[in-house]
Design a binder for these strands. Sequence first.
RNA 1: GCGGGUGUAGCUCAGGUGGUUAGAGCACCAGAUUGUGGCUCUGGGGGCCGUGGGUUCAAGUCCCAUCACUCGCCCCA
Length: 413
Amino acid sequence: MASLQPVRGTHDLLPEQNRLHDHIAETARAIGELYGYHRMTTPIFEFTDVFARTLGDTSDVVTKEMYSFEDRGGEHITLRPEGTAGIARAYISNGMQQMSPVKVSYIGPMFRYERPQKGRQRQFHQIGAELLGVEQVAGDVEMIAYGAHILKQLGLWDDVTLELNTLGDPESRAAYRTVLVDYFKGHFDKLSEDSRTRLDKNPLRILDSKDEGDRELVANAPLFADYLNENSQQFFKGLTEGLGDIGIAYQLNPRLVRGLDYYCHTCFEFTTNTLGAQGTVMAGGRYDGLISTMGGPQTAGVGWAAGVERLALMVGEAPPAARPVALIPMGDDAERHCRKLAQDLREAGIAVELGYAGNMKKRLKRADKANARLAVILGDDELAKGVAQLRDLDNSDQREVALNVLIETVSKG
RNA sequence: GCGGGUGUAGCUCAGGUGGUUAGAGCACCAGAUUGUGGCUCUGGGGGCCGUGGGUUCAAGUCCCAUCACUCGCCCCA
């Protein structure tokens, strides 16, 4: 093993893997265009405050997973652990409420100081989308449809389940939270150690505990559905109806929660059992309180994010690259002629593999390895006659083609 | 941050109870075939056996530490 290791939790994306990532990014971008979402890019680092304020000081992401540092000017900087906070900050910085509704997508590296596992790295990539300024449930439906469309396009639909829940509006959630905390306090001695700390920090998370004892308590816990006010019920009904209208199946999961206060109403995750413990492929929800929490105008918001590495694990292989045409010159004159020919072919949109050296055997071998579909063999004899040998590398058919119709012939395949 | 597993060639992995020059397949390079690839055959290059320390006459093998990956918890995409 080489002594030069990459930093823990970081990985090189070698060309093949990079192509898979590009495929996912491009699929997400193209689908986004169909829904009217356009790419925007925010900085990879922000003032620490941007994340500390939006993620809340109780979340693990903020308390122990951020890459924070002081820059040379003494500013407190953090590498972004997720994408939404930066978009929200940009919305405020640029007065984007003028453009409401704002429909954007993004892709980029994120950083979290976590214990690495398969599908969980310290530098990873997310695609995501945000819809700002739409309070109608139609926005939530569109968001889910958009995410689902990407998963379908990537061929992952059969491996994925849409789990759905509502967090209600702030009033409903506050009411539920109170009875839930009371309930668990009544059974404090039976709670797991993790959940005891959650009781203060993030009581809703107890619903999602994997501890056996917790699960028994949770089974008898008060139901959120019983504490939803009229407004919240109507909103959730609109969501399920909307999904029904466009034929997206979902599974209700009352234990699906978010911890932070600015989340409300819609909460969804696309999950899979093909990735072990890292089962969440795409997650999102409504966050009407986020922008105002950051000091901007009260602005409704819905969004989702998905981990590119996890998607890549599921997709497995990138679609094959375009098959090039290999040029095989023999001799100096032919070499020079091929230089020009390669340029012309490339400018005509044809991928060209130009062997840099070697005899014909080596060059053909290399052409084969490059998965070339055709080889253009050009030697002194051919040059003198104004022709080239055009060899089909799949079936070994070889024929003579006049140089002045070569590009045309190759273009036709 | 907590608990378990694994680190031998570029990749996938063999190397009972410690024993002398560490192996295979794939990949790579060359030749058989000097202007014709894939298939086949022959040969070749590649290893601080993750790293550091310890036990021993002797360590890839046993012990400790450390680093990385990995499975689960936590958290989350």
